[in-house]
Each structure stands twice: as C-alpha cells, then as structure tokens.
Amino acid sequence: MTQIQLIVNGKKVEGNVEPRKLLIDFIREDLGLTGPHIGCDTSNCGACTILLNGRAAKSCTMFAVQADGMEILTIEGLATDGKLHPLQQAFHENHALQCGYCTPGMIMSSVDLLSRNPNPTEEEIRLGISGNLCRCTGYHNIVKAISSVAKSHIFVSPVKKEGRD
C-alpha cells in the first residue's frame, strides 16, 4: 500500500492505496465522489474525465499514486456557493444531455477547452470534445451549450493560469 495526499475540489485528502488502484476508483470508491463515471474503462469514452492540475485527464487511465501531490477537480467541485457553473447551467438550458452518463466528463473537457480558448469555432469545440463519447449521440446540443457559454462571455475558469515556456 502507498500513502498519497492530494487536493480534491479544494480539500486536502489522504489515501492509502494499492499502486494498481486506478484514479477513477480512488475518486469514486474511497472519496465517494461518483460524478466522474466509468464508461468504457478502455481510455476511449472520456466519461471519467477530471481536471488534473487544471488539465483534462481520463482518470481511468491513471493510477491513483500518479496523482500524489496533485490538484484534482471533479464535476462536484464546479458549482460555487450552490450555484451551477455557467457550463452546467448551459447544458441544462440547451438540453445538452439525454441519458446524462457522459455529461460530467463532457463538462470537464469543456472547461479545459474554454480555459485555453475562450472563443472556439464550432470545429474547435467538436475537436475539443473528441475525447468524449455521447452514446445517445446528442452532440448537437452539447456543442450548442458550449458555444452559448463562449458567446455570452460568462465562462469563469476554475483553473489558475500557469506560466508557459
């Protein structure tokens, strides 16, 4: 077992994990945060997407030990003071979910996209969520929701800006 410490949705958490424990299972089972989903479990579908140090990552394709010392944001950490994040609100208003299984991952990838590119074209939005599958094939309204947030300039990045080389 390996001792790990990380910050999840702004709170310090500790864990004692077997090295082969996947990050998604640590988040869901040990921390009880069931927002990030396990869809395909083969690194394809993106339902398990979280932000790792501010960048979208598939938490089914990481060991929890790799995240030791890092900062994680899950869908649960996106709303502030009981108010939905603009992307969550836009998904709600645009009917950007049917069964909703892909939604947590879809929204976290959209956060990564808009944090880097506040004014994406439709093509850039579609490329930005190409690591997330919606098996209801409801992409049209998902793209519409992301685009509405970008166009109305209401996106607030939960990610701190970092220096780039």
């Binding site: 993106g46 997407t49 790792l52 979208a56 598939k58 394709t61 990564d112 690591g131 997330n132 080389d165």
Partner: peptide, 30 residues
C-alpha cells in the same frame, strides 16, 4: 506542452502539424 510551445510556429511546421493530430485533448495532456 509541445502544441502550446512558442518554438513550433516558426521553423518546425511538421512538429505542429503532427502534434495537433494526436489522440484527443486528454491524451495530449498526459
């Protein structure tokens, strides 16, 4: 990091053309 690097826009067009085709954003991030 390669995709966002300042070096790519100038003399290394093939690096840029390649890296933007890789996987998806989650895969490129890790």
């Amino acid at each position: 990091e390669i995709l966002e690097s300042k070096w790519l826009s100038g003399s290394y067009p093939l690096l840029l053309d390649t890296v933007k085709e890789i996987g998806d954003v989650q895969v490129r991030n890790r």
